[in-house]
Simulated assay, not measured.
Amino acid sequence: MSAPAQTKKQVPLPFAYTFAFGAIAGCTELLMLYPLDVVKTRQQLESGKGGTGMMQTFRNIIGTQGVSRLYKGIIPPLMLEAPKRAIKFGANGYWSGVLTSNGTRQNTQALALATGFLAGGTESVVVTPFELVKIRLQDKSTNFAGPIDVIKHAIKTEGVGSLYKGMEATFWRHWWWNGGYFATIFAVRNALPKPTSKKGELGNNLLAGTVGGFVGTALNTPFDVVKTRIQLHGTGEWAYPALLRLMREEGLSGMYKGFAPKVLRLAPGGGVLLLVVEALTTITRKRLGPPYNT
């Protein structure tokens, strides 16, 4: 009797391809759904109890400032998209290797949570200046012509270090989002039946990513609100005292201003990312041939 044929495994694509696909997918998602980020920021900058709803905020921006205002401040996020995605998942892979001794120790829910926390903290170091520039451009009363104008003004009036104002709040925003995101993905994947097809695997990943993103957003939105305000006004306030003051002055609803547009961006955004990456991966594997397309 002849030996059973061995199933050939597809060779992973080189890092340059996966890096480029992630960047292209991220920029595609950003271009399609960026207006929701502008609306989120406007809602978060409203002080006092209550606030303008999401749809009314949309109407106010378009009615008073035009449709183009929905894309104000998009250059910094576009510039950041490729390194941010590389750092997010690269840091997650690095810390996962550290905590599991390069795979010799079994990954657990607790380790997945710790890995996410550390990856988020790492990511915040790169993100902070870009976030500060974006927030100051998205403010409804901004007079800045563009990103360079914001940077020049910040350095001239407050010094180079001012570009990192809100760093501590940004750290906690990413700490909690990545922890919730990666830990939830781990839990959801383990809870779902093992997929028996590519379509099933895609469905599992889409569900896990969407639930993970929702949990991450629920955890980090209060920190996102205080970070946005700290970076706009350059107060240098610490995140947790600012959070307590926000809760005291504006209540729970104040802590979750901008939550609706964040979540609405999350679900379709995750779908866009997966569709673009899958399409580019399939096309590239066919063009490269074996051993990438076996």
Rank of each mutant, 00 (worst) to 15 (best):
Q56P: 07
T115R: 05
E168A: 12
V215R: 01
G289I: 02
N293A: 11
A25L: 09
T170H: 10
T57R: 04
K88L: 13
G159R: 05
K152L: 04
G269M: 05
L30Y: 11
V215S: 08
G53L: 13
W177K: 02
H153K: 02
K72A: 14
G166R: 02
L206W: 08
T115L: 06
N190R: 09
D224Y: 04
M32Q: 03
D224E: 11
L244K: 15
L243N: 09
K134C: 08
L70Y: 05
G161N: 08
I75T: 07
G254A: 13
G146P: 00
Y240H: 13
L80Y: 06
T294E: 11
G48E: 03
L252W: 13
L137Q: 01
K198V: 03
N102R: 10
R229P: 00
Q231T: 15
L132C: 11
V67Q: 03
G159V: 09
K88Q: 10
G236T: 08
Q65L: 07
L36P: 13
A25I: 05
T157L: 07
A154G: 00
S2L: 14
G200I: 01
Y240W: 15
I185A: 05
L244P: 03
V272Y: 05
G212C: 11
G166M: 08
G271I: 01
P77C: 06
A86N: 01
W177Q: 09
F58L: 14
L243G: 09
P195W: 07
K9C: 13
R245T: 15
G97M: 10
E201K: 08
R136W: 06
L275V: 15
L78K: 00
V215P: 00
V38C: 12
I24P: 02
R105L: 12
T294S: 03
G213F: 03
E46M: 08
D139Y: 06
L31V: 15
H153M: 02
K257G: 14
T235H: 12
T52C: 07
V211I: 15
G53S: 14
V11K: 12
R136M: 02
R59L: 13
L232F: 02
A91M: 13
N178V: 00
L111R: 12
V277N: 05
V39K: 07
H233F: 13
D139R: 09
V127K: 03
